[in-house]
Amino acid sequence: MKRIITITVLNRPGVLNRITGLFTKRLYNIESITVGHTETEGVSRITFTVDVEDHKQVEQLTKQLNKQIHVLKVNDMTNENVVARELALIKVNAPAAIRMEIYGVVEPFRASVIDVGKDSLVIQATGEPSKVEALIDLLKPYGIKEVARTGTTAFTRSSKRGTQSKTAFIV
C-alpha cells in the first residue's frame, strides 16, 4: 500500500540522510520524496511516498523516525483526507503538423505548454499524482522524450470550512 508520510524537521546537515537511512534499513523503497521550507524559519517539511503493506511496520517506522535528532513531527497521512499535488514537466515529440492535437490532449488537464521547440513541446502539469499519470499515458503515443516529476507533496484538509490548522514549533 502506498503511504504518504510527512516529517517536519529542523534544517540541519545530515538530517535527510539519517531519515532516508531508516527507510533503507527497513528495506522500504521510497517512491517519491519532496523537501521544502515551511512557514517557520529553520524548519523544513519532508514528504515521502513509500510502499508499506503492514500497519505495524508503519507504526514501528514512525516511532523510530520520532526518535531521530532534529525531527519535530511525523505524520502518516495515508488514511486522512488530504490535498495532494505533484508537478511534472513532460517533453513530447511535436512536429508542427500535430501540435494542435497535442494542445487538445493537454487542455482538459489544465496543463500548459511552457516551451516550444522545433520538434517538441514541454508541458507543465500539476495535480494529484493519478491525474499526472493519466496525462503521461495519453501523451505516450506522441513519443515522450523526457519526464521530470517532483513527487507528491500533501496537507491534511481542514476539518471545517473556513478554519485553518495551525501548528506552532518551538525552535
Rank of each mutant, 00 (worst) to 15 (best):
I170E: 02
N93F: 03
T126S: 10
D54A: 08
R161T: 13
I144A: 05
R12W: 01
V105H: 04
V92L: 10
D54I: 08
I5V: 10
E80S: 12
R3D: 04
K2H: 12
K145T: 12
R149D: 03
D76P: 11
N17R: 08
P141C: 06
K145A: 07
S32C: 08
L87S: 04
V71E: 08
T49N: 08
A97Y: 09
P141S: 08
T40I: 10
N79S: 14
T126N: 08
I123R: 00
T62A: 07
D76K: 00
S32Y: 05
F169C: 04
T38I: 06
G21E: 07
G42P: 00
T34C: 01
T20S: 15
D54Q: 13
D115H: 09
A84Q: 13
K73A: 11
E31W: 02
L139M: 07
N79P: 01
P13V: 14
G36M: 05
E53G: 14
A97Q: 15
H37G: 09
P95R: 14
N11Y: 07
A154R: 00
A88R: 04
V43N: 12
G151R: 02
G42I: 11
T78K: 02
H70Q: 13
E31K: 12
V58E: 09
V52C: 14
L135P: 14
L16T: 10
K118G: 00
T20N: 05
G14E: 12
N75E: 15
V122G: 04
N93L: 10
H55E: 15
H70Y: 15
R12A: 13
V92C: 11
L87M: 12
V132A: 03
M100R: 05
T47G: 06
K166C: 07
R18D: 14
S120Q: 11
L72I: 11
R157Y: 08
F109H: 09
M1L: 03
V147N: 01
T150A: 14
A97F: 07
R45F: 11
H37S: 09
R45S: 07
K145C: 01
N11W: 06
A84V: 09
Y28H: 13
V9T: 10
G143T: 06
Y142M: 04
A94F: 03
V52S: 14
K140P: 09
G42D: 06
V71H: 04
R26S: 12
H37P: 12
R85F: 00
A134H: 14
S32K: 03
Q60M: 08
P13K: 12
Y142F: 13
V82F: 03
A154I: 09
G36R: 12
Y103G: 00
K25D: 15
L138W: 01
L10I: 12
T152L: 13
R85G: 09
Q124G: 05
A154Q: 04
T152Y: 05
G14T: 02
T24D: 06
S165H: 13
T6S: 15
F155H: 07
A88F: 11
A168G: 05
I30P: 06
V35C: 01
I7N: 02
L135G: 06
R99Q: 13
T153I: 11
S120K: 04
T163Q: 14
E31G: 00
T6V: 07
T126Y: 10
F155N: 06
I144P: 05
H70R: 10
S158A: 15
S130F: 05
H37T: 03
